[in-house]
Amino acid sequence: MTAPIPMDGPLIPMPELTVAAIRHAVARITPSRVHVFDEHLAEAATNAQQAQSLAPLRAFIHVWAVNVAIARHPARAARFRALEALVDAGNEDPTDALAEIQQILQAATAEAGL
Results as ranks from 00 to 15, higher is better:
residue 1 M to F: 08
residue 1 M to R: 12
residue 3 A to S: 14
residue 4 P to K: 09
residue 4 P to W: 15
residue 4 P to C: 14
residue 5 I to H: 02
residue 6 P to E: 10
residue 6 P to N: 10
residue 7 M to I: 14
residue 8 D to N: 12
residue 10 P to R: 15
residue 10 P to N: 15
residue 11 L to F: 01
residue 11 L to G: 09
residue 14 M to W: 08
residue 15 P to N: 09
residue 15 P to Q: 09
residue 16 E to Y: 15
residue 16 E to H: 07
residue 17 L to M: 06
residue 18 T to E: 10
residue 18 T to D: 13
residue 19 V to K: 07
residue 19 V to D: 02
residue 21 A to E: 09
residue 21 A to P: 03
residue 22 I to F: 08
residue 22 I to D: 11
residue 22 I to A: 08
residue 23 R to M: 13
residue 23 R to F: 12
residue 23 R to Q: 12
residue 26 V to W: 10
residue 27 A to M: 09
residue 28 R to M: 09
residue 28 R to F: 11
residue 29 I to P: 07
residue 30 T to H: 11
residue 30 T to L: 06
residue 30 T to G: 07
residue 31 P to G: 05
residue 31 P to F: 03
residue 31 P to Y: 01
residue 32 S to P: 01
residue 33 R to V: 02
residue 34 V to W: 11
residue 34 V to D: 02
residue 35 H to T: 10
residue 36 V to W: 12
residue 36 V to F: 10
residue 38 D to N: 01
residue 38 D to K: 06
residue 38 D to H: 06
residue 40 H to F: 05
residue 40 H to K: 10
residue 41 L to S: 12
residue 43 E to S: 11
residue 43 E to H: 12
residue 45 A to R: 15
residue 45 A to G: 15
residue 46 T to G: 05
residue 47 N to K: 13
residue 50 Q to S: 14
residue 51 A to Y: 14
residue 53 S to M: 15
residue 53 S to V: 14
residue 53 S to L: 14
residue 54 L to H: 13
residue 56 P to L: 05
residue 56 P to I: 02
residue 57 L to F: 04
residue 58 R to W: 15
residue 59 A to I: 03
residue 59 A to C: 07
residue 60 F to C: 08
residue 61 I to N: 01
residue 61 I to R: 12
residue 61 I to A: 03
residue 62 H to Y: 12
residue 63 V to G: 12
residue 63 V to K: 11
residue 64 W to I: 05
residue 65 A to N: 07
residue 66 V to L: 07
residue 66 V to Y: 06
residue 66 V to H: 07
residue 67 N to Q: 11
residue 67 N to R: 14
residue 68 V to A: 01
residue 68 V to G: 00
residue 69 A to F: 01
residue 69 A to D: 01
residue 69 A to Q: 05
residue 69 A to L: 08
residue 69 A to Y: 00
residue 69 A to V: 03
residue 70 I to H: 02
residue 70 I to E: 00
residue 70 I to W: 07
residue 72 R to L: 00
residue 72 R to G: 07
residue 73 H to K: 13
residue 74 P to A: 04
residue 74 P to C: 12
residue 74 P to G: 08
residue 75 A to R: 08
residue 75 A to W: 10
residue 78 A to R: 11
residue 80 F to L: 03
residue 80 F to R: 04
residue 81 R to P: 08
residue 81 R to Y: 05
residue 82 A to L: 03
residue 83 L to R: 00
residue 85 A to T: 01
residue 85 A to I: 00
residue 85 A to D: 00
residue 87 V to D: 01
residue 87 V to F: 06
residue 87 V to S: 00
residue 88 D to I: 04
residue 88 D to M: 01
residue 89 A to F: 06
residue 89 A to R: 00
residue 90 G to I: 02
residue 91 N to V: 06
residue 93 D to M: 05
residue 97 A to R: 00
residue 98 L to I: 07
residue 98 L to S: 04
residue 98 L to T: 05
residue 100 E to Q: 03
residue 100 E to F: 06
residue 101 I to S: 06
residue 101 I to Q: 09
residue 101 I to G: 02
residue 101 I to Y: 04
residue 101 I to N: 04
residue 103 Q to W: 13
residue 104 I to V: 06
residue 104 I to Q: 03
residue 105 L to C: 00
residue 105 L to K: 00
residue 106 Q to R: 08
residue 106 Q to K: 03
residue 106 Q to S: 13
residue 112 A to R: 05
residue 113 G to S: 02
residue 113 G to T: 03
